[in-house]
Every structure is written in C-alpha cells, then in structure tokens.
Design a protein around this nucleic acid. Structure first.
Lengths: 143, 143
DNA sequence: TCTATCTTTGAGAATCGTTATCATTCTTAT
DNA sequence: ATAAGAATGATAACGATTCTCAAAGATAGA
C-alpha cells in the first residue's frame, strides 16, 4: 500500500539522486502533489502549497513542476480549455476521459488502444514516441 | 473529383446561407484554406492570404477562422507545441500522426479506434462528445 | 559549525498565441 | 443609391507560462 507521504518521499529521493536541491518550497509542493487525487493546474497547486508554506511563489510552482516533469515523477496534460494540469507519475500508463460538464478527469487504461496505435503507426512507417488520447464525454443519464 | 475552387465555393455558400457577409478578406482566406494540403497555423494562413489580398490583418484571420469553425467548414487542432493549426473539414473523420522531427502532419482513419473509444466510455457511464487522438511519431528507418 | 559555491528563490517584466475594443469602412437588402 | 448593421485594421488587453536578476538558501567540505 503506497500512501501519500511515501509518494512524496520517493519524489524527494529522486531529486536528491539527481543532485537537485530540496528546498522548503519544493517539499511543500511535493506534499501537495502527492496528496492530490485530482488533476490540479498550476494555480490550484500554488494555492494548496501556500496553505502549507506561505513563501511559495507561482514562478517556483511552474519551475518545480518543470523539474519534476524532467525527472519523470510528474506528468503534465494540456487538455482543451485552460492551462496544463498535473498528476504524479504512477506506474501504469493510462489515458483520460474529461467530463465536459464538470471538468472532472477520469483515468482509464486500454491495452487494445495501445497496441492499435502501434499498428497504425507501423503501417505508415512510423513508431510512436508518445501519444495523446482524450475522450471528451458527457455522463449518460438513465431515465 | 472535388477541386480547390469547388471547396472555396462550398465554403462561401455556407457563409451566405448563414447570413454571414462575404468580404474581400474572407474570399482570400477561403481560397488559401481550400488550396492548402497541409495544416497551417494562423500566421502562415495570414502570410498566404496577404499574398492574394494585402489588406488582410491577422485579427481578421483569427476572427474568420473562428467563424468558419462555428460553421463547421474548418477544423482547429491544438497539437503540442506552438499555436493552433487548421484544415478544411472534409467529410471523413480522421485522426493525426505528428512527425516529431519535421512537424509534418499525416492523417489516418481507424474504425476500430472509433468503436473502441465508444466502448470504453460506455463502460464508465459516459458518451463521447468528441475526442483527441494524436500519435507523436518518428519515422522508422530501414538499414 | 563555518564557509564557499552554486542553486533556487520571489517579484515582476517579458513572451506567445489569441481575443477584445473601437472608430471607420464595407456588404447587403431594399 | 441608401440605410442598417456587420466586418475591418490597428492596437490594447488577455491568460498561461517563462525569463531576469539581485537576494536568500542548500549543500559539501574544512
């Protein structure tokens, strides 16, 4: 069972190993990201981090998110409308459904999609470096 | 066989039918979009349109593209990196491969993908409004 | 623990793509 | 030809993000 403080510790360990300094501001942000079970944007993360450590600026949030992304511990998603949203890089690859009414993000995983896209690319003489697969959806309501 | 001037005529007809005025600037832009067989961005379209009709401003390019998108005759794609890119709305739905080395856009169509995404959404209680499926790829080179 | 080095920081300016403002010009139906 | 209203160019404003730079802080070593 991986809890939130384990996640934060793993991320700080990754930073230390890469020779990147672990500052008060970064500790605060890592805690906030580890705790998040949604997909917050930079401003939202800034608000949450400031509640823990008031001396965190938005510039530092952006800078740290870029560092964490480079280290592969955080993923950035630029969904339609609004700014980028972030999540901890958990091991299983997944794609996203976006509820167009609520903005909620739901994760899903499909092996078929993964193999299908490789097939499609190969057939055209390409290999997939990465992909974007986002379903903009509406909840089905039963009568 | 649908040639480029047919495309432009269809688009102007769509505008007229919707009570939207057909100006010199819009005619120029429609011609340019109909001729394009790539996926140009707004600045590129502005450059091409100015070559035909010098009195086209970038603001009008953006405004007209929004109008054309609302009318469903043009599609806008926000691929990773850089601004939005545009194409005429041809009848067959398709998705895109992006060559990460050259920036080139290749279109492809897959019925399997379409039905698979509907399945995935339905299973989670959603119906797909629209989707984004982009493969960021590299050309496979044979030795 | 003290220092030296070198990274990170906050504040705000700058950037990029895009949209809004507004007075003037142009399309279109009459 | 004319009136009414839509579209225009120029430029300001915008939102998200990155950059700049002097000041503060983290880390390794003595």
């Amino acid at each position: 069972m991986v809890n939130e403080s384990d996640k934060a510790e793993k991320m700080t360990a990754a930073l230390r190993k890469a020779g990147i300094r672990v500052t008060r501001q970064r500790i605060a942000l890592l805690g906030v990201i580890a705790d998040a079970d949604d997909h917050p944007d930079a401003v939202e993360l800034h608000d949450r981090a400031r509640a823990v450590e008031p001396s965190v600026s938005l510039a530092t949030v952006y800078r740290t998110l870029s560092v964490l992304e480079e280290q592969g511990v955080v993923h950035r998603h630029s969904f339609e409308g609004g700014g980028a949203r972030f999540e901890t890089a958990h091991e299983e690859h997944h794609d996203h459904i976006l509820d167009v009414d609520t903005g909620e993000v739901i994760e899903f995983q499909s092996d078929k999609i993964e193999q299908l896209q490789d097939e499609i690319a190969r057939e055209l003489g390409y290999e997939v470096v990465h992909h974007r697969f986002e379903l903009y959806c509406r909840k089905v309501r039963r009568s």
